[in-house]
Write a protein that binds this DNA or RNA. Structure first.
Lengths: 353, 353
DNA sequence: CGCCTTTTGTCAACCGGTTGCCATAAATTG
DNA sequence: CAATTTATGGCAACCGGTTGACAAAAGGCG
């Protein structure tokens, strides 16, 4: 029936070089030159240096190109110029939904400006990340690092080579895109305070995470402002599972509201607390961060501080493209706003009954 | 005039061509040749044709290469050979979690075999997809199409040019990777039948979706086998929102169990039914397809027929790599198993009370 | 030891664009 | 109308590898 492998080896050992697989080789500027009756270099200019050739020859060449269905050979172009119209995006974990919107945002902006996005994953490891970055550097015009794990110095070293933009972290001397947590956090804390909470717990993310530190700072500041108590708890890992594991500490802390480093933690935490019989939000309020895909699948749906991830991605791409084309180097930090997305997992505390 | 080659570049207005941004140009095989005292072509052979040069010169060259920190220029290599060690993956929607695992699986396998994955999105449009595919064809060695929207003929045309592998669809003459729905579906339907359900509804996906058709066929067959009734309902779009919209039809159908084309639909449907006061699974059982990220965030967690998406991605990548390196062309269809993941959203029907 | 086969390294011709320099034609100016 | 500037196209030298053809060197054999 359906054999998994049908090794019909005997086919033709296709040498297949310039003719991809069929018989017709791709048209080159030399072909166009022949058809249009001009020199190849003129064709090259007509196609890449607007205004360098007369309108008449321009048209002649364009017609010939269209007729031959010409498309540039990117390698031939890249060889002498070094430009590839490509840039790289490195994320820590492709399956982490936090990055989905970043990827999409970057992809969209790239495509819009005729660039191609090349994606790589670092598997949450600083060395893999650096390796991937190095490898990419050879083939791209610029690089976006989303929540990078490597050293500031490594990043700066890369940035000396080609334009680099960092998302979700600030590195001196390198253009960055970071969500400004303050607005979202203060909205969240004010909402909790208004609902009668006096003590909130913050479940932190990885210790090396720049963003986790910012969020904890933000929570402390907002709590101080609202005159409520803030305690910090550590998580083992920033995942659903990590959230489950931290549930004990959360209950022990005596806090009636929890903010977690990210939505994944919040979801795991909520599952575990509910499994233990607690009612959310009547007995405890839970607020996540990021508003990832699936944050509204839970019952109750998760209240969260949204980072405009898509905006981060497209912002970083735009920054990079400006760097590549612009004359000077602005290289500032782009801050994007966060906001509270109020759903069902936070609310008024019911008197114990 | 000065010497033809002056390594110490006057550090003025950086023309920045081969020297990325700093002063040191990348080492080339010519540099290695000079250091090792051999001809550039010998260097080229030593580095790419194992066994073509003597062990002695091999070592000499490798040492020189290491000393100069040489890395090949991919463009220079691609130009004469056409090989890029790169392949493309086109997905309909980067933010659709169905593709996450596919992407990751393909990425992992690619990296493992020293290939780079280039990702593109078709935004669910057949024309965008074809455009993206065409564009990619110029720069990659092969292409993976995940749940493609374009015509069979377009796919075959692409496949004539370079190796193409299709995921989640069968196209004659093109190697494919498809989950075999039967096992998973029959498990699901048997489970429903065993729980006392006599009538199940199938909420279909897009009409052009090859996979939706297969799933409906599978459901019909399994229901016939279990002697229970199956009805088909249409959805407007295969998303959470589409699931909400189809809730009315589901209730009107009188079915006590529902299988939906994908998890997104199932989640939306469940949300809507619960909002209307129905209890899942006591009053109605819901089963999705795919086991996407977030399928277990819901309350109750979603029962679903899992497709090994990661396996599909890595399988497709492996197939493609075999095609690229293998001598002949197996070009068969790779079938992967599906299985039922029993969670809380399906179960015994409670007598109406 | 001469003849023949098998390594092993060199030469040179690409791959397909880009770009500096130059010659010519066209346009501008005194 | 000559002199000078400017627009336009051609020539040729790259970019950095790959590879077929070939010659020199090495090894095998009678």
């Amino acid at each position: 029936m359906t054999e998994p492998k049908t090794p019909e080896v005997a086919a033709t050992t296709a040498p297949a070089k310039k003719h991809a697989r069929d018989g017709k080789p791709n048209a080159t500027i030399y072909d166009i030159a022949k058809v249009a009756g001009v020199n190849p270099s003129t064709v090259s200019r007509a196609l890449s240096k607007p205004g360098r050739v007369s309108a008449k020859t321009q048209k002649l060449i364009e017609d010939a190109a269209a007729e031959l269905n010409y498309q540039v050979n990117p390698f031939a172009r890249a060889l002498p110029t070094g430009r590839t119209n490509t840039f790289g995006l490195i994320v820590a974990d492709i399956t982490n939904p936090t990055f989905f919107d970043i990827i999409r945002g970057a992809e969209t902006t790239a495509t819009l400006r005729d660039y191609t996005l090349v994606l790589a994953e670092s598997a949450e490891s600083a060395v893999t990340e650096l390796t991937a970055a190095r490898r990419m550097m050879a083939t791209v015009d610029g690089l976006i690092l989303a929540s990078p794990r490597m050293d500031d110095d490594d990043i700066r070293t890369l940035a000396r080579d080609k334009p680099v933009v960092v998302i979700n972290r600030e590195v001196d001397g390198v253009p960055c895109v970071v969500p400004d947590v303050n607005k979202g956090i203060s909205e969240a804390v004010r909402s909790l305070a208004a609902n009668g909470h006096h003590k909130v717990a913050f479940v932190a993310g990885p210790l090396q995470s720049w963003m986790s530190a910012r969020r904890w700072e933000g929570v402390q500041a907002a709590c101080e402002w609202s005159r409520i108590e803030a305690v910090r708890l550590e998580s083992t890992k920033p995942t659903v599972d990590g959230g489950r594991q931290v549930a004990r500490d959360v209950r022990a802390s005596g806090a009636t509201a929890v903010l977690t480093y990210n939505d994944l933690l919040a979801i795991g935490l909520m599952q575990e607390l509910q499994a233990a019989g607690m009612v959310v939000p009547d007995q405890i309020s839970i607020v996540g961060f990021d508003d990832i895909f699936g944050a509204d699948f839970t019952t109750p749906p998760l209240t969260t501080v949204r980072s405009p991830l898509g905006e981060c991605g497209s912002g970083a791409a735009a920054l990079l493209l400006d760097l590549l084309h612009g004359t000077g180097e602005p290289a500032g930090t782009l801050r994007v706003e966060t906001e509270l997305v109020l759903r069902g997992s936070s609310g008024r505390l019911l008197p114990a009954g």
